[in-house]
Amino acid sequence: MHIDRQTTVLVQGITGKQGRFHTALMRACGTQIRAGVTPGKGGLTVEGVPVFDTVKEALRYAPVHASIVFVPGRATLAAVTEAIEADIGLIVCITENVPVHDTLRMMDMARDRGAVLLGPNSPGLIRPGHFYLGIMPDRCFRPGHVGIVSRSGTLMYEAAVQMQKYSLGQSCCFGLGGDVMTGWGFSDALSWFHADDNTDVILMIGEIGGSDEEQAARWFLEHGRKPVAAYIAGLTAPEETIMGHAGAFVSEGQGSAASKIETLRLAGIAVLDLPTEMGSGISKLFCVPS
């Protein structure tokens, strides 16, 4: 997946409140939004962007590299299917409350067609100074050489803000999303950062639930070459309680913060004890010879 200033974008669900609002913000950041789609609203213009009924029609007007999806949960599967079938290589799904069975179908389709799916429930991705596709506050981020990958949106902004104090910026930041299952996982992002010459160190921000952090630890044991630090949220969360994100819960002893921290440490990842150490922890990693 290659993303830069020339990456062109389609907005699915552009006529809704969220789609409209974030189209304006993304354009202000220089994102090259070429077209929008809302079934039944073809012919309109939103924020200067022409709207089409289907992805196919939109792509006939202007080919794009990436799509960002704002359509409601009940229509997300159809929208993402359309984008994958049109061979769009990067799909960022912002929508929350997508049925898990639908997510599973989207993940299978994306894998079969070689598309990158971020989300559902993702805050998007940002390559500061180059490319912005999402809903995070862009002014928290500065160009630099730290790669951030996070399940949580707000903790990703917090990390970037903490890094400002140490004059550190980011090569790229990926928000994986807080759902039970999501397309891209930590190991996909770690692998991307390892191939990216602009990334020197990596910060992983995980949380309770699932085993994506553990899978990343296994990936890192085998392939890791760049220094990685991690913070895991949810040490105080009681079992079986859903902590805000649909996917953030510990069940039958699986997915607890303590077990994730242990696994990451054993793999040689520097685990940060406190959420306030994300800036200082990363600055220390720059001193470690890799």
Binding site: S152, G153, T154, L155, T236, G244, H245, A248, A257
Partner: peptide, 13 residues
């Protein structure tokens, strides 16, 4: 945000 909330609870603890 759920992540910020969880991290805040952790730091309180």
């Amino acid at each position: 945000g759920a992540g910020l909330g969880m991290a805040t609870m952790d730091l309180i603890h």
